[in-house]
């Protein structure tokens, strides 16, 4: 690949955990501070950039590729809030075809179109669908496409499980030039134990939490306006949280190769946390804790 233009960042995480929301807000915050940003949704649902562009229609790369043989960047991109260039890879309808190969084909096309040479981005953010279910979804972190991967997780076990799976993929590809881990983004923080739980997981796997995003009504409200929090409620505390995340990503380029837990380790870890949370909820007071 020719010299890379801009910093390429991939965001992973369990389905529905808040990847698109978080990524869009980070994009908006980066744009707000003057950077040129591209956000690429790598998800057949093609809803990654919705709140950056007021919910307007955007033909996906693959749909366009299917319909016309010659594709131009203008056909498959839209300029959203703060000048963020929005692109949706798209994919097949659920249950047919191979979405993984779709991501592959879309990314290849973007490279053929010399998107990065044309747009000269400072940041490119890839918002990648749920679990790394097959090789196709690992494309952004393979081949050195993205330099850094971040994972969004809540304190739910299944979200942690998905994060651990991403660690496995990073662990596999990083040594041969794939992306390394930038850190963990803790999202939808509500329960008092949540930060400690996610911290503990990060610690056990040799990674770090780069920010805690509270669960907030502002997010839902902004979404209903078809906007990011940065755009809809720029003065809010929530907006500041996203700005801090963006700032961290901008200023810290440190990465690690995480050490994912194996099956039994993860189960044991979860069980221990289960016991602790249950005790907290049930109001059991340990002698030690009472001192």
């Amino acid at each position: 690949m020719s010299e890379k233009i801009g910093k390429h960042i991939a965001i992973y995480g369990k389905g529905g955990i808040g990847k698109s929301t978080t990524t869009s807000n980070i994009s908006a915050a980066l744009a707000e501070s003057g950077y040129r940003v591209i956000q690429i949704g790598c998800d057949p649902k093609s809803d990654s950039t919705t709140i950056l562009r007021g919910g307007n229609d955007l033909p996906t790369v693959l749909d366009t590729l299917r319909e016309q043989s010659k594709v131009r960047i203008e056909d498959i991109s839209a300029v959203g809030f703060g000048g963020v260039l929005c692109i949706e890879a798209g994919g097949p309808v659920p249950g047919v075809g191979c979405a993984g190969r779709g991501i592959n084909a879309a990314v290849e096309l973007l490279q053929e179109l010399k998107l990065f040479d044309e747009f000269k981005p400072d940041f490119v953010l890839y918002d990648v669908l749920g679990d790394v279910v097959c090789g196709g979804f690992a494309v952004p972190i393979r081949d050195g496409l993205a330099d850094r991967a971040f994972v969004v997780t809540s304190s739910d076990f299944m979200a942690i499980f998905a994060a651990n799976n991403l660690f496995k993929a990073v662990n596999k590809y990083a040594p041969s030039g794939g992306a390394r881990l930038g850190g963990v983004i803790a999202n939808s923080i509500l329960a008092p134990y949540a930060p400690a739980l996610i911290d503990d997981f990060a610690g056990k796997t040799g990674s770090q939490v780069i920010g805690y995003v509270p669960r907030s009504l502002v997010v839902a409200q902004s979404e209903l306006y078809g906007q990011t929090v940065i755009e809809a409620v720029p003065q809010s505390e929530q907006a500041q949280v996203y700005r801090n995340l963006a700032k961290f990503i901008d200023e810290n380029e440190e990465t690690v190769i995480p050490k994912p837990l194996n099956g039994p380790e993860l189960k044991k870890w979860a069980r221990e946390w289960g016991d602790r949370i249950f005790e907290v909820e049930a109001g059991v007071v340990h002698e030690m804790a009472s001192i």
Binding site: L65, G91, V93, V96, G97, C98, A99, R101, G102, A105
Partner: peptide, 10 residues
């Protein structure tokens, strides 16, 4: 071709 792989070849 690729488009059938991505979208299904049915």
């Amino acid at each position: 071709g690729e488009k059938h792989v991505v979208f299904g070849g049915g």
